[in-house]
Each structure stands twice: as C-alpha cells, then as structure tokens.
Design a protein around this nucleic acid. Structure first.
Lengths: 251, 251
DNA sequence: ATAGCAATACCCAGTTTGGGTCATAGGCCG
DNA sequence: CGGCCTATGACCCAAACTGGGTATTGCTAT
C-alpha cells in the first residue's frame, strides 16, 4: 500500500492543493484508499467562534454536523479529549481509553455511534504556539481496524495537516507570532511561580531579594502582554517554555 | 514491511521495555529493520544540564558525542531547529530545508557529515507541557532515502517516543497519586482561574456572587491539599482535569 | 426522615500581587 | 568607547487573594 505510486501521489496532492476544495477532494481520495468512509481534520477550537488561521474540514453528514453544532458537542469531544498529552495515533473505541472519559464524553461517543461512527483512528497534532488539532478516519462498521493501514494513515494525516496549516496561514496572512524568549533567570521564576511560590520565597530560593524576583516576574508578564499569573502558567506550558516535570517537581 | 509480524512486535517491545537498556536494544533492532545505521531519540534540552524527566538515547559514536558535548552543538542542532513548528517528519539533507539554517547550523551539519551522518530522516515530537523532542534515523551513505520506509519510521518513532515518555515519567515519580474528582462548578472555576480571572469576574461570568466563586475555589484548593493557585493550574493540566484548548481559548 | 453533599451567600484579617518608577553594576559587541 | 541587555535592588499602593469561619437551600441515597 505504502509502496504504491498512488499513496505517494496523494501525499503530494495535499501540498499541491490550492484551496479547501482541493484538500477536500484529496482527503476523500485518501480516506477511500485507506479503507475508511469518514474523515475529519482540524483544530480543536470553538467551532461557533473559530479563531483566525484555524481550520476544520470533514465529510461528516450534515445531520451529524447539525447535532454537533446545536448540542455544542465540539466543546467536549471525547476523541479530541483523548488527544491530550498524546503524540501517537490511537484506534477507538478501545476499552482502556474509554476509562478516561466522563459522562458527557461517553454520551457524545454513543450519539456518534448511532450516526454511523462505529470505529476509527485518530492522529493528534500538537505544535507549540498553535491550537491543538487532530485528523480522524472513521468507518460505519464496528470491529477492529486493520493494523496495517495505521502507519499509512498516520503518515498521510501528518502531511495533510502540515499542508492545510500552511494554506490556512497564508490565507490568514500570518505568520502567527512565536512565543516570547526568556532569559535563564526568567525561566527560573516562571518555574517557581508554577510551583506556587511567593515573591519572597522565590527570592529566598534564588538567593536574591524579594523585589528582584518581583522584577523578573514583571518582565515575564510584560513579555506575554501583562497577562495574569495563572494564565501565564498555562501559556508557558503550552508554548513549551517549561515542562510539567520541572514545574511539578517537589522541593 | 509494515504488514510484517516483526514490525508489530518491535512496536510492542517499546511498550514492554522496562528500562533504558530495553529501549536501546529495541531501537537498535528497529533501526536495522528500517535499513538505517544510527538512531537518536530524545528531548531538545541542554544536555549538560538536562531537566528532570527529560531523556536522550542514541547509538552515536562516542567520538561524535564528545564533539557534540564539548562544542555544545546541541544548543544549535540544525536538525532540532528544523523540527520547530513542524509535525511531519522530514528527510535530510534537502535543499529547501537548508535555506532556513544559519552559519552555525550548517557548520554543525558539515561536522556531522564528516562523522558519517550523510543523510537521515527525523520525526519531530511536540506535546503541550513537555519539551519538544525528536527521533532521528541516519545512514552513513549519502543519497536519497527510500520513501517507502518513511511511514514505518514515522509510526514507529511516535510509539517509541510515547513509550519512553511514560518510562521517564514514572521514573521521575510524577503522577502517582490519583487526581481528585471535581464537580462541574469546580471545573468551571478551575478553567476561569487558568484564564486569569478574579473571583469577582468568575462570579460575573457564572452568574453567581463573588463569594460563591470564592467558595468553589476554596474547595478546589482543599482537594489538592491547599496548594497555591498557580500550582493548581499546572496540576490540573497535568492531571488531565482541564485541557489546554479549553483553558487558553479566548472568550 | 435524615444525613450528606453541592451550590449558594456573606464576613474578615492578614498577605500577596501587579502595576508603576528608578538606579547601579557587569558583560558583550561593534 | 558607548550602547544595549541582563541582573540586581528598592519604594509605593490599590486591588486581589487566602483561608479561616457561618449559614441556607435543595437534591439524593440510605
């Protein structure tokens, strides 16, 4: 399958696509080629109020899309939820994944199954400074998905996402701004903020005065546009400026 | 290749590995299976002062590793640089990628080529809350890499990274105690805290009094053992109680 | 029915935050 | 050498947070 000329040409077609229509047709082709029926690719954002340069393309039925929009399923999409903290693709439904879902997630999953989404394969896409997203292939038949198509689906989905990102960015005229850069000292106070330390404690730990720690923090806030402390924590983790292990380390 | 039993068993072996030695042997096997000679997988961090729970494994020669450490190449690694803002894997060297490199990058790339890294394939790995990383396969022969192995390499690298992450995390002792459970209201105030809202703003948004929002937050803090607000944000994101998309979305 | 829990609401004293502004010292670079 | 950046330190002050309380309402499970 992967050795085939057809597979190579589908990948190339994503990069050659000039607009959403071209992407859609290529995806339709790919979905059929891989043996699935449905596809969806896009960012995990508020679909009723999508941010600039975000995108979402699928061949889901209008009935299901109506339900998703009307019931606001996209805010608690179980498949999107399972993408959190994950790089490798995953086939669903799978028992040990279902354990992580809450009531609302399961309800949505059941509604989807009624609408012919019995099983599928989803590829998460995370990139620093961008909205998380994913690419999903689904079938109306229940039962296990053939494992040998997964590498091809994973590979193709990644390139498809890459191609659509570029298209969406150039269409939006950005250039998303890259996350700010920080000095070593600034990164240190960021970690300490995430550990819940006060300015006085930071000063103690770093061997500097309370006011100096305060000053470093002020510059960090300013770099992010004077956002609030807690929002900063979420941002630096998301932007890859700090990692969970460092921030959550006991001390 | 991908259909082969051997490929499946290599993937499984990564998840079954109990320590770095097991990972190393499995990677050696995978590298040979894919037709490469060298492999390297790990986080893009300061190797002289690696953060907790970060990892790096490779079968590079000690001569090259010495040079990398001594000359601090890892701070300006051209391959790591090309991973920025990219999800799909990439084969190198490739002319349109080289354009993005600066002098120092090219110098390091040339030094690597002298040390037998003529061409390769690199898979970037980005995950919110973690350092970016990558997995590289390389060969001492110049010339184009056969395209048909790339999907297998991409797929296997993703699962390998996933398996090593889990190993490194449990070794770092994170995520041992099960996270507390929260009510819907509590989850709402958690999200609002992560968005930098004050108690008064939370009350406004939720249609309750400032003091009620305060009360919900107090119970959340208590559930985590009266930790500080900012530390809470890092914890709930790590524990999967809230996700980056819901916390960072504009509203 | 009654005990438990979630959600609501209010009080309060002490601490912390997050904006300013200002100043000095050292390092690096052209 | 001068300019720029970083790290350091200091002061001010209104607003917000923190962590104790108490108390009512309504729902649910035993």
């Amino acid at each position: 399958m992967i050795q085939s000329q057809e597979f190579q040409s589908i990948i190339q077609a994503f990069y050659d696509a000039k607009d959403e229509q071209g992407i859609y047709e290529t995806f339709d082709h790919l979905t059929y080629f891989l043996g699935f029926k449905y596809f969806a690719i896009g960012h995990h954002v508020d679909l009723l109020n999508p941010p600039i340069a975000s995108f979402g393309i699928s061949n889901y039925s209008s009935g299901w899309l109506n339900e998703v929009f009307h019931e606001r399923y996209f805010m608690d999409d179980p498949i999107h939820f399972l993408c959190n903290g994950r790089h490798a693709g995953f086939a669903w439904p799978e028992s040990h994944l279902l354990n992580r879902l809450n009531e609302r997630h399961r309800h949505i999953l059941e509604r989807g199954a009624l609408r012919n989404f019995q099983s599928g394969y989803t590829i998460p896409v995370h990139l620093p400074g961008e909205y998380s997203g994913s690419c999903t292939f689904a079938t109306p038949t229940s039962g296990t998905i053939a494992h040998n198509v997964l590498p091809a689906a994973f590979f193709a989905a990644s390139h498809a996402f890459e191609a659509i990102r570029r298209l969406a960015r150039t269409a939006a005229g950005l250039g998303l701004e890259p996350p700010p850069q920080f000095t070593d000292r600034q990164r240190e106070v960021i970690l300490l903020m995430g550990q819940g330390k006060t300015y006085a404690e930071m000063g103690m730990i770093l061997g500097i005065s309370r006011e100096t720690a305060h000053q470093h923090c002020k510059l960090v806030f300013r770099a992010y546009g004077n956002i609030q402390r807690c929002n900063l924590i979420a941002r630096v983790l998301y932007d890859g400026i700090a990692s969970f292990p460092e921030m959550l380390r006991k001390q």
